[in-house]
Amino acid sequence: MSKRNPEYDFVWCPGCGDFGVRRALEWALERHVAEHEIPQSNYVIVAGIGCSGNMVHLMEGDQPFGLHGIHGRTLPLSFGVKMGRPDLETVIVAGDGDFLAIGGEHIGPAAARNVDVTCVVMDNGVYGLTKGQSSPTTEMGVMTSSTPYGKIESQMMPLKYYLTIGVSYIASHYSSKPRDLADVIQDAMNHKGFSIVHVQSPCTTYNDTYDLLKGNRRKGIPGMAWDIPEDHDPSSRQSAEDLLDRPGIPLGLVYKEERPTLQDRVDEIAESNPNRTADELLASYAI
């Protein structure tokens, strides 16, 4: 249920990481609007299918535009939005199943194009809406409803994948620190090019990783998440690789590369080539 639509009946489970991500995204949008003086109506949230995608219906305050499409296709849908209307600020919200499994084929092309959209990927390592099947980021050996004898595929390492495939802005974070996360999302939106903020967003029902991420002294669990040191150079691919070779979940900006976006290249072509009208095109077929 959302404040603006009492009839909307979708709810996240209590404690779901997506609450924190939503708060962070709301703040990031609010600040981005203020920072650039862009009207709220110029923002488009393209949502994936899964628990996280429902965020587009749950945001409070001034509403951005939303596009809640089909499973796995946030990247090509947002590609259409952004290349059709470069003036629109386009943000993707999707889960690990949507973005990395069914939608995985679109990450490489989006990176090669360096299309100027920001992805907020909520990784809970499980398919929640369909009630607990394994996802690409589920650890090997873990028993889920679809891996009754333990997962027999390797766990995917999304950050390394993004780096290898040429994503120009990669950040990693988790949902329990919404204020910090908001800063990161805002920074990613300011990046000219394809940016991914990969967020650990635990599923309290099927894969509760809060203790693992933050640590629990009473249970003797050391936290997996660690702040990226201040001396890390995000412009260095080698430093980013070294960083990702360390165990655990880094928090902060992993890699950032400034290079022309697809729109820059399209504009370049447009400058040196005439915009031919239908009349001119028709004339080229004269007998």
Partner: peptide, 14 residues
């Protein structure tokens, strides 16, 4: 799949 998704996104954007 990219083609249809992109034209749907563009149609949405006007």
């Amino acid at each position: 799949i990219e083609a249809i998704s992109a034209i749907v996104g563009a149609g949405y954007a006007g």
